[in-house]
């Protein structure tokens, strides 16, 4: 069998899931609107009001999101390292520590420059 076939199948399944969920809730879900429901979804934070074009997200929200991604990526790289830890030895340990230090540099910058202060 062509090795690409499973990928195609997976793609089709994924697309079907997305389409079906949205379409299904649209078709069969109850519709009772209130203000909270119509607001932009923002992790429970009040959206910043804006004169034109409706609500606008505060830029700080993105800072937090980006910081999250930094650590997200770090863990992505930690996973394969953990799997092959035994075979890689001291070299990889040093490298991995360096990598984490690198990531923490970004974190330190963010913290010192007030990226974590909400107001």
């Amino acid at each position: 069998m062509n090795p690409y076939v499973p990928i195609l199948v997976l793609t089709a399944l994924g697309a079907a899931f997305a389409v079906l969920s949205v379409a299904g809730s649209f078709l069969i879900g109850p519709r009772r609107h209130n203000r909270a429901k119509l607001d932009a979804y923002e992790c429970g934070i009040e959206p910043t009001p804006h004169a034109v074009g409706g609500g606008r997200f505060p830029v700080k929200y993105y800072l937090v999101a980006m910081l999250f991604i930094v650590f997200d990526i770090e863990s992505v790289f930690l996973m394969p390292y953990a799997v092959a830890f035994g075979k890689l030895g001291l070299f990889a340990l040093v490298e991995m520590v360096l990598f984490m230090v690198t990531v923490f540099v970004a974190y330190a910058y963010m913290w010192r420059r007030g990226g974590l202060d909400w107001d």
Binding site: T102, A108, Y109, W111
Partner: peptide, 10 residues
């Protein structure tokens, strides 16, 4: 470059 980022921070 990393050092320079730390300079910015501290």
């Amino acid at each position: 470059a990393l050092l320079a980022v730390l300079v910015e921070a501290f």
